[in-house]
Amino acid sequence: MSDLKDRVKQATSGADNQQPEQAPVTDLAVVDTARQWLQRRQTYFTDALPRHVDKAHFMAVALAAMEKLKDCTPASINTALLACCRFGLEPDGRQAAIVPYKDVATFQPMYEGYIELMYRHSRVDSVHFNWIREKDQWDYTPSEPSPRDFYHKPRVDLSEEDRGPVILAYAFAWIDGRRSQVIILNRDQATKIRDKYSKAYKNAERKGTKDSAWHTDFDAMWAKSCVRRLNKVVPSSHDLTELLQADDDADDTMSAPPVIRGTVISREDQPDTDEQQTPSASWPQTAQPGSGAPDDDGEPGEQS
C-alpha cells in the first residue's frame, strides 16, 4: 500500500504535475466572430443585392470568404461586401474577390465579373473569353471582315499540358447579332500593362513583398486585362463604368483605402503606412472556450 501511495505522490508532484499547454484557439474564435458578425447583418447585405442575384447563395459564398478576412477591420469588410452587392457579383474569386491587404479588405472584380456586367446590356447577346495555347490552330487577319478575321480551334485531342503553354488571351462579344472586334493580348503586352498601370505591383516590388495580384496570379490579371479592353467595343453602361473605376481604386489600396461610390470610409479605417502606424478597427475580443466570459457584440468600426 505504501508503494502505491509513493507512486501516486510522485505522479502528482514536481515536473510530472505540469499540464500540457492548451492548443491555441484564438484564430478559430476570431473566425467564428467574423462569421457571426456577417450573419447578424445578412438582411443588410441581401437588401442591397440586385433582384436577379440568389441571396442565399451570395451569403453562403460571403460566409466562406470570411476565414481569410479574419484579420481585416469590420469596416473594410463591410465596404468590400457592399461593393459586391452594388454590382451583384459574388466574392467567389471568379466574379469578384475580397483580398486582404494588411488589415484592409479590398473589393477586386475579376474577368468573369466584367463579363457578367457586359451580358446585362440589352444589346449584348454573348461574351467570350479563351486562351490560345502553343499547339492550337488559330489565325488572326485584321484586314478580313468579321467573323472571318479570327479563327481558333483548340486541340481537343490533346491534354491541356500537351497543348503547350498559353501564348495569347482573347475576348469578343456578339452585339445585335454581329461579332465585335476581337481583343487579343499576349504575355508581353500584359506585362507592359502591369508595369505601366499597376500601383499595387510597383509597391510590392519596391517593398520586396511580391504579394500583389500580379505576383500571386499573373494569369488571372492577364485575363482581366484582356476582358477590360473589350469595354472599348461593347455598349457602355453606368454599372460597367463604375466597375472599372472601382477596379482602379482597388489597385491603389496599398497606399490608400478603396473608394466605392456612395460609401464613406473614416480616417481611422485607413490602412497603416510604413512611416506611421495608426490605430484601426478590429474584431471585438472573443472569449476563450470555458472562460465564462461573454463575447463582445462589436459593431463595424469599434475600437477593441
Rank of each mutant, 00 (worst) to 15 (best):
Y170W: 09
G301L: 03
Q181E: 15
R148Y: 10
R94C: 07
Y119I: 04
A60Q: 15
S237H: 05
E299D: 14
A29N: 12
V233G: 01
Y101I: 12
E299P: 01
L185G: 00
A48I: 02
R163F: 02
N130C: 04
A256R: 15
V127H: 04
A96H: 08
D296N: 07
S255C: 05
V31I: 13
V25P: 01
P20D: 04
I167E: 01
G177H: 12
E302D: 15
D176H: 08
S255E: 15
R123E: 15
E144L: 14
T209K: 12
S266H: 11
L49W: 09
P289G: 02
D248N: 08
T79E: 02
D251P: 05
Q181W: 02
T191K: 12
V8S: 03
I183A: 03
F150N: 01
P279M: 10
R120S: 11
A29F: 03
Q245P: 00
D157M: 02
A293Q: 11
A97F: 03
A23K: 09
D274E: 14
S255I: 13
P20L: 07
R155C: 02
D103W: 00
I77H: 04
T263H: 15
L89D: 10
A220N: 14
V156K: 11
G113F: 05
A281V: 05
L38P: 02
A34D: 01
D269H: 14
P20M: 06
S2I: 15
T286G: 00
S76T: 14
R94K: 11
A11P: 03
V166G: 00
P235T: 01
R163C: 08
K153Y: 08
D16W: 05
H215N: 10
L89S: 03
N186F: 09
N231Q: 06
L244S: 10
S198K: 03
R178K: 15
S126T: 12
S212L: 10
C226W: 11
S2A: 15
G14F: 05
I98H: 10
P257C: 04
L117N: 12
T26N: 11
T278N: 12
P165C: 05
R229D: 10
N231W: 02
G262E: 11
P165V: 10
D251G: 11
R178S: 12
E21C: 05
A173C: 06
R123K: 14
F45G: 01
V99Y: 07
N17D: 13
K70N: 14
E134S: 06
S122N: 10
Q36R: 14
G88T: 06
K224G: 00
C226R: 10
A293R: 08
V61Y: 06
A11G: 04
W214R: 03
P271E: 03
Y114F: 15
F129I: 09
E205Y: 00
